[in-house]
């Protein structure tokens, strides 16, 4: 289990994250999403023990992470720009990883290199961005870590490789109870793979929830009435967002599906539709609720 307790990290006078409490269960796939500059990468780098927190605790199974070699041996971090030593080939890089990770599986490395059709004797830096990322995944998966940290993991990968990578990650979660922390702006990707979601904004964790709970708690409602929307409905539902398209009203409402449906049906609408939100919509409306709304910029 990974735990952040009241963690604060400052860079000079700039506070990157403040009082963050976060829990990730073993074997879970945790998605970290947030606005630009919200502190996602700071959290990731704290867990990877690249940064040291100013206040609070970052622990894995109760032990502090910073400079803890035993924990770091079981943790692989793929940054948004995977780093490789200059002039190194995949084979040489693999040798370096083998020395760092006791759980390294040479057999698996060979199989993965074959599955991804990588020429292990070619210099990594001569590969394209997407290929370099594939090689980073091969290294990470061959090291068989307990915890895998991914920063914008699917960036630059084509759809076929994405599917391959996703399937391999899931196999490791299913078979070895590997824990994954993934940050991304591609909410579709996060939605498919994660079971828990943390939403960050301006250095604080706004929401931390199971994805299905998050989704079942917000709904998109489309209603139309013969004589216009009854005023008392809005008072009762307190929508996060309301707009009118022609004669159809679109409301984003928080709460239980059955309760909302009951309240609306009582007002006898002509059209009534209740839909779950996509993660992208949840993100946009939750952010809008705290004043980070979409404004059409005109220059």
């Amino acid at each position: 289990m990974i735990e952040f307790k009241n963690v604060t990290k400052k860079f000079d006078r700039y506070t990157a994250i403040e009082n963050v409490n976060l829990t990730i269960q073993t074997g879970s796939i945790y998605g970290l999403i947030g606005s630009n500059g919200a502190g996602k990468t700071t959290i990731i780098k704290l867990l990877a023990s690249i940064y040291r927190q100013d206040q609070g605790e970052v622990t894995i199974d109760g032990q502090p992470v910073f400079e803890n070699v035993h924990l770091k041996e079981k943790l692989v971090f793929i940054p948004d720009h995977p780093y490789v030593f200059p002039q190194y080939t995949t084979r040489q890089m693999a040798r370096f990883y083998r020395n760092c990770y006791p759980s390294w599986d040479e057999e698996r490395f060979k199989n993965l290199a074959q599955a991804f059709e990588v020429d292990v004797n070619k210099k990594i830096q001569s590969f394209s961005k997407g290929w370099q990322r594939q090689i980073a995944f091969i290294m990470a998966l061959a090291a068989k870590p307990d915890i895998l940290i991914l920063d914008e993991p699917m960036d630059g990968l084509d759809p076929v490789v994405r599917k391959k990578v996703k399937n391999l990650l899931i196999q490791d979660v299913a078979e070895r109870e590997m824990t994954i922390l993934v940050s991304s702006h591609n909410l579709r990707e996060i939605e498919d793979i994660c079971d828990h979601i943390g939403i960050l904004h301006k250095g604080t964790l706004l929401i931390e929830k199971e994805l299905d709970d998050l989704k079942s708690n917000v709904h998109k409602v489309q209603v139309a009435y013969k004589n216009g929307l009854p005023d008392r409905l809005l008072d009762k539902l307190k929508p996060l967002h309301a707009e009118k398209r022609g004669s159809v009203h679109l409301l984003i409402v928080r709460g239980e599906e059955a309760a909302i449906a009951k309240q609306i049906i009582e007002t006898h609408p002509v059209i009534f539709d209740l839909l779950p939100l996509t993660l992208e919509e949840i993100f946009i409306y939750e952010m809008g609720d705290i004043g980070y709304a979409i404004k059409n910029v005109v220059v």
């Binding site: 996703k166 399937n167 899931i170 994660c194």
Partner: peptide
């Protein structure tokens, strides 16, 4: 099994468990 289905459908095993 959860494992089998997770791999087959590329879905989070925790979701299947649930």
């Amino acid at each position: 099994s959860v494992r089998q289905l997770a791999t087959e459908l590329s879905i989070n095993p925790n979701t299947i468990q649930k």
